[in-house]
Amino acid sequence: MKIWRHLCIDMQCMFIEQTPWHVPWMSRTLDPIAEVAGRFPERTIFTRFIPPSRSDLMPGKWRDYYKKWEMMTTGRLPADSMLLVAPLRRLVPPGRIFDKLTYSPWTDGHLHRILVRENVDTLVISGGETDVCVLAAVLGAIELGYGIIILKDAVCSGDDDGHEAALTLLERRFSVQSNMMSVQEFLSAC
């Protein structure tokens, strides 16, 4: 591990609170994530999934997606739903926030350009959901050539089977580019 950043995916109020997108066991990953981010806030980048204000503002199938989830658009949600959960919010700054409109943080190229300028070659991944936004972040990072460490006890999903399938996929099919570790294993190696 040379130059690394902790990429914490979408630990936001709208996922931890009782909304249609509630991730029931996100609260169980909060302490391990806060431990990593709290030790290395200057190396932590928090992504936030920011829905549009209306479904018709999105292209293609995203429009259909937000027609289904209209109640989860920023036009309908309280503004504080987009915030990071409280224990993580206090770490910014020096931690940074990167907002994204899709599952992947790589779509517009901005995050990659920042990491290239900082000579980052490894990403330590935490957050939610394992089988959606975390998976998109990991696969995109692999495509861009980053080494990946997935903190297996610091990722979560609203679908246990999807969570397990995503971790199994990443461990079996991307073992050259990615590594699974517990938070304690990672912290002991730092």
Rank of each mutant, 00 (worst) to 15 (best):
L135C: 12
C156N: 10
L151T: 13
C13H: 15
T168R: 14
I150Y: 07
V120Q: 04
P105M: 05
E42G: 12
I97H: 04
A165W: 12
R89T: 10
D159F: 12
R117S: 13
M1D: 07
R54E: 09
R113D: 13
W4G: 11
Q18A: 14
T130Y: 06
M26N: 02
T47Q: 01
G147R: 15
C133F: 05
S53P: 00
F186R: 07
C13K: 15
P105F: 02
I97P: 03
D121G: 11
M71E: 14
L77Y: 01
P24G: 07
L101V: 13
S188K: 15
P41I: 02
T44M: 01
A141H: 11
S178D: 00
V132C: 08
G38V: 05
L139S: 12
L77E: 10
D121S: 14
V36D: 07
A136Y: 14
F186E: 04
T74F: 03
H110G: 04
G147Q: 15
L135W: 12
D108Q: 07
P105H: 07
Q18P: 07
S27D: 10
S126Y: 02
L88G: 11
L151E: 07
R90N: 14
R39S: 12
G128Y: 07
G95D: 07
Y103E: 05
N119A: 13
G145Q: 11
L77D: 08
R43F: 04
G75M: 02
V138D: 09
T122R: 08
I9N: 06
T168H: 12
I50M: 06
T168M: 10
K61C: 00
P105Y: 03
H110I: 14
G109A: 04
L111R: 00
G127Q: 06
R28C: 00
M1E: 08
R39Q: 13
G127E: 06
H110W: 10
G60A: 06
